[in-house]
């Protein structure tokens, strides 16, 4: 039982660590320093302690933005994950059709965020946009600059269009890695399509789904360019998400102290949610292995 582990390979991550220190750790430390001070310039700064944190936590606009952010992230996850799995299941697995479908599915992923916003902004316009014009011709008074429901629906539709392919591609690669023998065994047992999905495909997809859900949660939780270009946060502030509130505060108003405190709260929320997702899904898997399934 006295197994000796050789941990020397850990030194290989040293260059990465240096890189991350410069790109993330040192800036994050600076943010922490800013969050407890009122900084005017290099020489004029005052220690404020926890004041910014108290102010940010009790700010009604930020609380509303946070709730909106959670509502948005949960909605897109609830739509994109099942839809992505579904698309992956019906994608052809062999021949030229497989290549064509793969390329078609991947296309939305190649478009930069602000371009996605612009595309949809034009697409939804009532005068020249196909969707806006079409809906209006059908008798629905569609207007994303005036109706909250329209704005939300369009942003969710845009996100689903842009990011479901990611889940679909991950699931597709997960499905491809299941050996044919599993399906043969299922056929011998005359398993239904549903049982094949429930007991063979879905368990094998767990790993890629963890990555998919985590990526999609983090992406959607910091969504910025798309709603900014599409609705500018409106109508009113009904589609102003957290990152946009933060940018307005930090860049627009140069309130570095409050924005630093707010960023740290934002960071803690993302850290907690990602950790809970990761632990929950990994733990489910471990229990399954212990039961011998």
């Amino acid at each position: 039982m006295n197994k000796v582990y050789d941990n020397k390979a850990w030194w290989l991550i040293l260059p990465m660590l240096v890189l991350v220190a410069f790109s993330a750790i040192i800036p994050l430390m600076t943010v922490v320093n800013y969050s407890v001070q009122d900084v005017f310039d290099a020489n004029t700064r005052f220690f404020t302690g926890t004041e910014w944190f108290a102010q940010m936590l009790n700010d009604p606009t930020l609380q509303a933005a946070l709730l909106r952010q959670f509502a948005f992230s949960m909605t897109v996850l609830a739509i994109e994950v099942p839809l992505g799995i579904g698309i992956a299941l019906i994608m052809p697995k062999k021949g030229w059709q497989a290549s064509v479908v793969l390329i078609l599915v991947t296309l939305p992923l190649l478009i930069p965020w602000n371009v996605v916003g612009s595309i949809w902004q034009i697409f939804t316009r009532g005068d020249i946009g196909l969707m806006g014009w079409g809906l209006r011709e059908l008798g629905y008074g569609y207007n994303i600059t005036r109706s909250t429901v329209d704005a939300w629906g369009t942003i969710i539709l845009m996100d689903v269009w842009h990011w479901t392919p990611l889940i679909a591609l991950l699931c597709y690669s997960g499905l491809r890695s299941i050996p044919e023998a599993y399906y043969q065994a299922a056929r011998i047992d005359r398993a239904s399509k549903w049982s094949v999905f429930r007991y063979i495909q879905l368990p094998k997809l767990t790993n890629v789904l963890v990555i998919g859900v985590l990526l999609r949660f983090m992406h959607s939780f910091m969504i910025y360019a798309e709603p900014f270009v599409l609705t500018g946060g409106g109508p009113g502030s009904s589609t102003t998400f957290l990152s946009q509130s933060l940018t307005t505060m930090a860049i627009g108003q140069q309130d570095l102290g409050p924005s630093a405190a707010f960023s740290l709260i934002y960071f803690l929320i993302i850290l907690l949610v990602s950790w809970v997702f990761y632990t929950a899904i990994m733990n489910m898997q471990k229990e399954k292995q212990e039961e011998g399934i």
Binding site: I26, M29, T30, V32, N33, V36, V39, F47
Partner: peptide
């Protein structure tokens, strides 16, 4: 390190 605007409490925290 002046640009990082260190304070005593944050230094203690990170240490």
């Amino acid at each position: 390190m002046e640009w990082m605007v260190w304070t005593v409490p944050t230094t203690i925290f990170f240490s």
